[in-house]
Design a protein around this nucleic acid. Structure first.
Length: 578
RNA sequence: GGGCCCGUAGCUCAGCUGGACAGAGCAGGGGAUUUCUAAUCCCCAGGUCGGAGGUUCGAGUCCUCCCGGGCCCGCCA
């Protein structure tokens, strides 16, 4: 719809004034009674022409109102207000019925390869709510962009190396030794200070003990323990354990790899219960094994220097507050080093664009990554970064705090189990992802208008119910019947309004894709559901009049197409009955 | 101290790159059911858009300062 107006304006502005169309806004006017869409073109070209915006608007309107797509084009205080004609709307709606969801499609991506990296939570504990939000936002972004013709790769960066993985091993071994009643004083200091204290560590430790008994009490038993684990049956794959080679601290090391396997299994399980999947699980370890980090340092050699035994990168010359360490004085690399290597790796894989969703606490990290990419001569707009703000959980009016240190989690899994994946997904999309979100568990469990998930799903179920009634009464299958000849009976103001709402969704969905704001879709759905519920209460759909009934069923079919598409894009089910 | 985000109706928030009289939902008040699902709908009430300046034909939207709140500032990841 917007496209249509834009193309008309473009032609007219060059024809009437010999100008190119400036990036004019075409949007809904404040007040519906003014028109369906409005544009501010006249203001934008007024300066250049040294003319009054109202006069310009008038000139444009005079020509445009001859177009039969418009019932009227009115200039008001310089604005151009467009009101579509019924004929145009019905023609478009007919297209929608013929094409189904493809009506809303547009090839924006042209098969362009685009990568979205999201979640990427460290495999040292269960996923929490913030991760879940990132998972949903990333997944929906991927769905929407695929819908608009991009070739999307969904990727999870697995931080499977470094100190945190060592600490995971220490924590598990410590608990294992405790469970065995043996001496664990060597590890106590590290564990108390930096170890992971959540209950899941105990779970892993006792699972280990169950299978390998006392074998891990000494380093001699480690290889045997590994073989026992590999031949045992677990509900998760032993990718890391299979690669285990005993070298330094073999007991800790085995605990680390087994812990990684266990936790990655849990993470995959949680994500899949949310309906989120990945194409690639990218291992940080592999970057080191494939010497990507070493190669990176060669590429960055002009910007490196040594100080106090460490290797520094001169990021401050590219907009960062200060320089950053790549190789610590103990010879190991920082997370930042492998992360740049990872971004370089993505670039070399040929993605046209890369979207990163990070936890909001990473915002200070952005300048140094951007600085490094500049050094590598990677174009600035190649990388898009969006921050996912935290989620606070409320229950019975009180916030439920989570504390990592105390090992108190409100895990994603607990939430999914309590309210179901549909509600979790929907609520995570009710606000822009860069603002904090409060999740009220009680409201989401309510079956009322306070609960937007049910509100939208109910609209879909209601339409399904009406279709059942229609089939029952008129002995006609609404799925098979050709309703196009009946569209002409749709002429009540409320019916036309609904048609417009559905048709305009096309522009809004596109907007959601381009601005990377999937939460727009939930607002669209709520709005459409609300219009439908209102219509339902005012009009009888299945009546004794064949023409009007058929026309309204056709209208509902269009609404259903839009509801289903919206729900599909946000990954929420569209129930036939509730 | 520096950086990022936020402050819109009693509460939770929309308001897109400045545009036409500031919008929803909830809570509050009043109504609608011999129904195609009331998990719904309709009506009412409620705001000096944190404060002060500035830019502009025009500012909730941009700039500066101030007040209030959150997050981040490791040779951690």
């Amino acid at each position: 719809m917007k496209e249509y107006i834009k193309s008309r304006l473009e032609a007219l502005v060059s024809e009437l004034f010999g100008l190119n169309l400036p990036p004019a806004k075409i949007e809904k006017p404040r007040n519906e009674s003014l028109g369906d869409l409005a544009s501010n073109v006249s203001f934008l070209i007024a300066k250049e022409l040294k003319k009054n915006p109202q006069d310009i608007a008038q000139t444009i309107a005079k020509t445009l109102c001859k177009d039969d797509a418009f019932e009227e084009v009115t200039p008001v205080k310089g604005f151009l207000n467009f009101k579509f004609s019924e004929g145009f709307l019905l023609r478009e709606f007919e297209n929608l019925l013929k094409l189904g969801e493809d009506f809303f499609k547009e090839d924006l991506g042209k098969e362009e390869r685009l990568q979205i990296e999201f979640v990427s939570a460290n495999p040292t504990g269960p996923l929490h709510l913030g991760h879940g939000r990132g998972a949903v936002v990333g997944d929906v972004l991927a769905r929407v962009l695929s819908f608009f013709g991009y070739k999307i790769t969904r990727e999870y960066y697995v931080n499977d190396t470094g100190r945190q993985v060592y600490l995971l091993g220490v924590s598990i071994l410590y608990r294992y030794l405790q469970l065995s009643g043996s001496d664990c004083s060597d590890l106590k200091g590290v564990f108390e200070k930096e170890g992971y204290k959540g209950e899941y560590i105990l779970e892993i430790a006792s699972l280990l003990r169950e299978h390998v008994g006392d074998l891990l009490l000494s380093s001699e038993g480690v290889l045997k323990a590994r073989d026992i684990l590999l031949s045992a049956c677990f509900p998760f794959p032993l990718n890391y354990t299979a690669l285990f080679k005993p070298f330094k601290d073999p007991q800790i090391e085995l605990c680390s790899v087994f812990g990684l396997d266990f936790l990655m299994g849990e993470i995959r399980k949680d994500l899949s219960s949310l309906g989120v999947s990945f194409d690639i699980w990218f291992s940080e370890r592999k970057l080191y094994e494939k010497r990507d980090v070493d190669k990176l340092l060669k590429n960055l050699k002009d910007f490196l220097y040594e100080k106090e035994g460490a290797l520094w990168l001169r990021t401050s010359a590219f907009g960062d507050d200060k320089d950053r360490v790549l190789r610590k004085s103990d010879g190991t690399y920082t997370y930042f080093a492998s992360d740049i290597a990872y971004h370089r790796n993505k670039y070399l894989r040929g993605f046209k664009k890369v979207i990163n969703l990070w936890g909001a606490d990473h915002h200070g990290y952005i300048p140094r990554v951007r600085a490094a990419l500049k050094m590598l001569k990677i174009p600035e707009d190649w990388l898009e970064i969006y921050l996912i703000q935290m989620v606070r959980l409320f229950k019975e009016g009180r916030e439920i705090k989570m504390s990592k240190r105390a090992g108190n989690f409100v895990t994603l899994r607990e939430l999914i189990e309590e309210v179901g994946p549909d509600a979790v997904r929907f609520v995570f999309l009710t606000k822009r992802s860069d603002t904090p979100l409060d999740f009220d568990v009680d409201k989401v469990k309510e079956k009322s208008s306070e609960n937007p998930v049910f509100y939208v799903q109910y609209a879909h179920a209601r339409i399904s119910g009406i279709f059942r009634e229609f089939k029952n009464k008129w002995k006609v299958d609404p799925e098979e019947e050709n309703f196009l000849p009946f569209l002409k009976y749709l002429n009540a103001e409320d019916e036309i309004k609904l048609i417009k709402k559905v048709l305009l969704m096309k522009d809004e969905l596109k907007e959601a894709a381009l601005s990377r704001e999937p939460h727009i879709i939930t607002y669209l759905l709520i709005d459409l559901a609300s219009s439908f519920h209102s219509f339902y209460n005012r009009y009888r759909i299945v009546s004794g009049n064949r023409e009007i009934t058929s026309a309204r069923i056709a209208l509902l079919k269009g609404i259903r197409t839009a509801l289903r598409l919206g729900l599909k894009l946000i990954g929420v089910s569209a129930p036939e009955k509730m």
